[in-house]
């Protein structure tokens, strides 16, 4: 796939998501918002988990932190968009500090360290009642207007964030940073020996991957109007985002977007049709996909698959 094809596919997808209010009901608009939101999270994760090969499980930590920074800023009277920017900056700074500490760990150790951040922040948020409202959660000032206006506002916001993260991904992928990150992913010691400042590169990648989770979190808080610790620092989210990315193809530019789309649509279909077993089925599908498609959907050579199918079909025809 040439870069131009990739960008065209992405542009088409953006148009499909952004135009849902024109051709579909509120259910689909809501789904488009969620897809755009998760795409932004997955693209973010891809920078550290895909390009750099560090299996971070801290997405929900930065998302939740963004929720609270955004919500508290808005409650203090800061305008909505500025509150989102504040959340982005705050999360970026925290991620840089935290990254400098835990990026010394590798592999599974790093994964466990990064998931620790989610739990610690959830506990701090639950316990620090005077600031965060604790388990009662926080109300966020609602956007004025009818349900359609609100939906369209947040659709525009989430799609914009998704596009920004995509552009960042493309720039990283084509530049010096992306090349260095790929070297680290392939062989960190060798990367160090050819002159890549591995610590700095990893911290930059981790910070980039965290900051937009903060933006998404703040936007989510404004959208739903209410946040609480278990909803925002959710272990399920921290696992789901890497799974979506792996499904599409970690380390590719388009993979996170494809993976998120396929996963969310699959989840929605299963949810609607198998109310009791949808989680189990989704789990089984996920395990099978990762076992048999370790490189993700984008790494399949569709030409080979079609050729094999055609050959099998011909053999069947000849036998009959």
């Amino acid at each position: 796939m040439t870069p131009t094809t990739r960008y065209l596919i992405f542009a088409l997808w953006v148009i499909v998501l952004a135009s849902t209010p024109l051709w579909a009901g509120n259910y689909f608009v809501r789904m488009a918002i969620t897809i755009a939101m998760f795409s932004a999270l997955t693209l973010s994760w891809n920078l550290i988990g895909g390009f750099t090969g560090y299996p971070s499980l801290s997405t929900a930590a930065f998302f939740g932190l963004g929720c609270y920074v955004g919500a508290l800023s808005q409650r203090a009277g800061v305008p909505m968009i500025l509150a989102w920017v504040a959340a982005t900056v705050f999360v970026a700074v925290l991620a840089a500090v935290f990254g400098a500490i835990i990026l010394r760990l590798r592999g599974h150790y790093f994964a466990i360290g990064s998931i620790g951040l989610v739990e610690v922040l959830r506990l701090v948020t639950s316990s620090w009642g005077s600031l965060t409202g604790g388990g009662d959660g926080l109300n966020v000032p609602l956007v004025q207007g009818g349900p359609n206006v609100v939906a369209q506002t947040f659709l525009a916001a989430m799609v914009t964030i998704m596009v920004i993260v995509f552009v960042v991904t493309v720039l990283v992928d084509r530049g010096r940073l992306g090349f260095g990150l790929r070297c680290i992913q392939q062989n960190e010691d060798a990367a160090d020996m050819v002159g890549v400042d591995t610590t700095r590169y990893k911290v930059i990648a981790y910070t980039l991957s965290a900051m937009f989770c903060g933006t998404v979190g703040a936007a989510y808080a404004s959208w739903t109007g209410y946040i609480d610790p278990t909803d925002t620092f959710s272990i399920l989210m921290t696992i789901k985002v890497p799974v979506m990315c792996l499904l599409g193809g970690a380390g590719t530019v388009l993979g996170p977007v494809v993976g998120t789309g396929v996963y969310m649509i699959l989840e929605e279909i299963l949810w609607a049709n198998f109310l009791d077993y949808n989680r189990a089925i989704l789990g089984a599908v996920t395990v099978l996909l990762i076992l048999f498609l370790p490189g993700g959907l984008l790494r399949i050579s569709y030409k080979t698959v079609l050729a094999q199918l055609a050959a099998r079909f011909n053999r069947l025809g000849a036998a009959a």
Partner: peptide, 19 residues
């Protein structure tokens, strides 16, 4: 210690770019 999944050319380019 190569970067196994990269091409031979990219391996050498990494040395040229960073070192």
């Amino acid at each position: 210690q190569p970067f196994p999944a990269m091409t031979v050319l990219e391996n050498v380019a990494a040395g040229a770019l960073f070192g």
